[in-house]
Amino acid sequence: MYLKDFLREENVFVGLTASSKSQLIRLLAEKVGEKTSVPASLLSKALFEREALGSTGIGSGIAIPHAVVKDLETSICIIARLSKPIDFQAVDDIPVDIVVLLLTPAGAQSDALNVLSCVARRFRDDDLVGVLRAARTQGEFFALLLG
């Protein structure tokens, strides 16, 4: 599985602004809600429940919030680079500026694991993460990410 298999350019955001982890999760849930038939409040609830188990801030300024949402029809991925890093209670305490949101339908846990694995592999590349942080536009960020 490759990132290009489940990420679309219109789901990439560069320069997104949020002042806190909770505000960011709500904002991303709203963006997903606009693209699906699932209310943003349900999406936020699923994400907050997952975060209550432990932060999805994986370190190096990257977070991968994810959740299973029973009313979702298909998996959706949104990637955002924030205009200013925020505290995400990451494992290394480094503020987060790149967020990969992944929501999957109930019953698709194996798909979710494949997608999470793909994302984690891609963002382990420090050189790639460096150029992503320097990307100026959505198109540039998307092209570099899939490159």
Results as ranks from 00 to 15, higher is better:
65 P>C: 07
145 L>R: 04
49 E>L: 12
32 V>F: 11
92 D>R: 08
55 S>K: 08
120 A>K: 09
5 D>V: 13
135 A>E: 05
83 S>G: 14
79 I>L: 14
63 A>W: 08
140 E>L: 09
86 I>M: 12
3 L>K: 10
21 K>W: 11
33 G>V: 07
56 T>C: 02
48 F>T: 10
39 P>I: 10
73 E>H: 07
69 V>Y: 03
115 V>E: 13
103 L>D: 09
70 K>P: 00
45 K>V: 05
53 L>P: 02
102 L>C: 06
7 L>H: 08
129 V>C: 07
29 A>H: 04
36 T>A: 01
90 A>T: 00
144 L>A: 09
14 V>H: 06
82 L>K: 07
110 S>A: 06
27 L>Q: 15
102 L>N: 04
56 T>V: 01
136 R>G: 13
86 I>L: 15
96 V>C: 01
48 F>C: 12
60 S>G: 09
72 L>M: 01
127 D>Q: 06
115 V>M: 15
101 L>Y: 09
91 V>T: 11
57 G>T: 12
132 L>I: 06
76 I>C: 08
58 I>V: 15
125 D>W: 03
58 I>S: 07
79 I>S: 04
86 I>F: 13
53 L>R: 13
94 I>S: 05
35 K>S: 14
84 K>D: 07
57 G>V: 09
86 I>Y: 10
7 L>I: 14
85 P>E: 08
91 V>P: 00
146 L>T: 10
70 K>C: 05
47 L>Q: 12
69 V>S: 00
135 A>S: 14
3 L>N: 12
15 G>V: 04
139 G>R: 12
131 V>W: 03
67 A>Q: 08
30 E>K: 10
98 I>F: 07
124 R>D: 15
64 I>W: 02
133 R>H: 03
23 Q>S: 15
23 Q>L: 13
129 V>F: 07
109 Q>D: 12
31 K>F: 08
27 L>F: 15
62 I>D: 01
62 I>R: 06
103 L>G: 11
36 T>I: 06
84 K>F: 14
86 I>G: 10
128 L>C: 13
115 V>N: 02
146 L>V: 11
146 L>R: 07
11 N>P: 04
85 P>H: 04
5 D>P: 15
44 S>R: 14
89 Q>M: 11
118 C>P: 00
69 V>N: 00
88 F>N: 03
46 A>G: 08
41 S>G: 12
86 I>E: 10
124 R>I: 14
134 A>R: 11
95 P>D: 02
35 K>C: 08
